[in-house]
């Protein structure tokens, strides 16, 4: 593959120079502990509550191979629907990686369900941060997208407009049509290897993950995994970033392990 491939173990300054992330803290460390009452109230069901879901470490290679052969990974749904080759997904300097990555995951989940995937405007989740140009918790976005949803791009004057008074009438109602319902939460405290196992287990069900890396202060969407012998755990994550890339990027190394990864499992019936 010729697409950009990053070693996440490189110094953060190098990763900033490479454009993977920015200097600004766009995403905060998780607000609610995995499995806590508040997390459960938000619908964040612990992945360890469904133990059958977990892929054996010995099966990684075979599972990854099958998910590519049968085009199960969200990267394929994404490429087929809302983000074909050459499509640019760009937060354009807004500190909204937490919304761009979450909306990408929402669209991939809708694609796997066979539901419409119109261009959605991540900026319409700005209400989660009082419409300021600032970072956010993933949990906060999850709460927003479960309750309020994301409005289609046709309701905003441009994809980066944070002044909601300029949105077309009816945007709030339209956003309700694109909401998240069921979610699986992963457990970073279980260690990097176990975390990667949980990530693959959700990907194997054709579902994307909305993820954050504290070291990078950045949120991105996990859409697939590659079997890459010689690299840490022999794996590489396939990621949809929102820095104007024309295709997914790859990230490997132990520091590629996300600190938070939330599987978007099914949408709200509307």
């Amino acid at each position: 593959m010729s697409r950009l491939s990053f070693n996440a173990d490189l110094p953060v300054s190098t990763l900033i120079d490479l454009g993977l992330t920015s200097e600004y803290q766009e995403v905060f460390q998780r607000e609610f502990v995995y499995g806590s009452q508040r997390a459960l109230e938000l619908g964040l069901q612990p992945v360890e509550d469904v133990p059958d879901i977990l892929v054996d470490f010995d099966d990684f290679e075979a599972v990854i191979k099958e998910c590519h052969e049968k085009k199960i990974f969200p990267m394929y749904w994404q490429q087929r629907t809302w983000a074909p080759d050459g499509y640019r997904w760009n937060q354009n300097g807004l500190n909204y990686c937490w919304s761009w990555s979450g909306v990408a995951a929402l669209l991939d989940m809708l694609a796997a369900e066979g539901r419409p995937t119109p261009q959605l405007a991540p900026v319409t989740a700005g209400g989660a941060v009082g419409w300021a140009n600032k970072g956010n918790y993933l949990d906060s976005f999850v709460e927003w997208v479960r309750n309020d949803g994301i409005a289609p791009a046709e309701f905003v004057p441009n994809m980066f407009e944070r002044n909601y008074r300029q949105y077309k009438e009816g945007w709030k109602e339209a956003a309700k049509g694109f909401r998240l319902r069921n979610i699986l939460d992963t457990n970073r405290r279980a260690g990097t290897r176990e975390m990667m196992r949980q990530v693959l287990s959700i990907l194997k069900l054709g579902r994307p993950q909305y993820a954050a890396w504290n070291r990078l202060s950045h949120a991105m969407e996990i859409i697939g995994m590659l079997w890459t012998p010689g690299k840490w755990m022999n794996i590489t994550l396939v990621i949809r970033n929102s820095h104007d890339e024309t295709e997914p990027i790859e990230m490997y190394g132990e520091n590629a392990t996300p600190d938070e990864a939330i599987g978007f499992m099914s949408s709200e019936p509307t």
């Binding site: 796997a112 066979g114 069921n182 054709g206 099914s266 949408s267």
Partner: peptide
């Protein structure tokens, strides 16, 4: 695989059928 694979959906479409959706029970 039937529920999660894009190639499965493609197979249905290739046979001239129209795939509508894969819905959760909700």
């Amino acid at each position: 695989e039937i529920l999660t694979s894009l190639t499965a959906r493609d197979q249905i479409a290739a046979a001239g059928h129209v795939f509508q959706a894969a819905y959760d029970r909700s």
